[in-house]
Design a protein around this nucleic acid. Structure first.
Lengths: 151, 151
DNA sequence: TTCAGTGCAAAGATTTTGCAAATCA
DNA sequence: TGATTTGCAAAATCTTTGCACTGAA
């Protein structure tokens, strides 16, 4: 989703395009990583000094509702947010640099899996949460090089 | 995992079998649902009145480390815990009654999926989080009946 | 007997709320 | 102009920490 499309999503929802909201979008857009509300606030203040933390919370919630942002769930804590290009699709997180990358295109597999689990358990499955955690190509290479040198 | 096996896990880890820990295990065992630390505390106090909330937090963390319990991640919040029979396997949550059911047996599918995503993104995938949310057979039936009657 | 484990109180962190002032459309 | 949105201060939650006491092994 481009910034333009996100602005449109706000308008369509009947929400106003305030500098605060645009700044927060900007901060998320600039950052590859997932950010906590506090961290978004910190960065956004550089662009919009009077921005309050409360507004950050409210905006992140709003963007999530609109499908423009998503929460990132990790064992260490679940207060990370990242922009969401595909709405509800799945994502990868790099444990080293916190980069979040969404992916799709594997949905048939997921659907088959859901069908199978649904049949086995007799649950009606309405939503799913799927995350992969690991190392992005860059960090992977970096760590590998360090290991090499240690030998 | 039976209570016996969990006790063994504690012993093996060099941890003591205190009444507090056993009570918390008991509470989780009794409950089909995922419970917040506060809720575990509330229920456990019925059996062990002097139990402190701090101990509940510490014990849930310990049990999670040992693979006896797991965190449940939901959009509404991620402070739920449930016993874990299979350690790291996947689970279903009923949005109505909060029942948590683990399942496995579909691992080949997941592995294929991970291999595919890994190849497409060049990430090294080390862990994954997979949850399904929906309605358990009982709640499904119940809600369906209510709808029927409404007509 | 000994040290891990506990409860309490207090601190810290995170998130939410109420409300007057500011501002987008 | 008028309804939203904002920032602030304060409250409400939630979680962690320090420390003296307790109790499992």
């Amino acid at each position: 989703m481009t910034i333009q499309e996100m602005k449109q999503a706000l308008r369509t929802g009947g929400y106003k395009l305030t500098p605060q909201r645009l700044t927060i979008l900007e901060v998320l857009r600039e950052s590859e990583e997932h950010l906590s509300p506090a961290r978004v606030h910190e960065r956004a203040r550089a662009l919009c000094p009077r921005l309050g933390l409360t507004t950050v919370y409210r905006t992140l919630e709003l963007l999530t509702e609109l499908g423009c942002a998503r929460r990132v769930h990790l064992e260490e804590g679940c207060n990370g947010y990242a922009l969401s290009d595909y709405g509800h699709k799945h994502y990868l997180v790099c444990r080293q640099c916190n980069q979040v990358v969404e992916f799709d295109g594997c949905d048939p597999m997921i659907s088959d899996f859901i069908a199978e689990v649904s049949q086995n358990t007799n649950f009606l499955i309405e939503e799913h949460l799927l995350e992969f955690v690991g190392l992005c190509p860059v960090c992977r290479e970096l760590l590998f090089t360090v290991e090499e040198e240690a030998r």
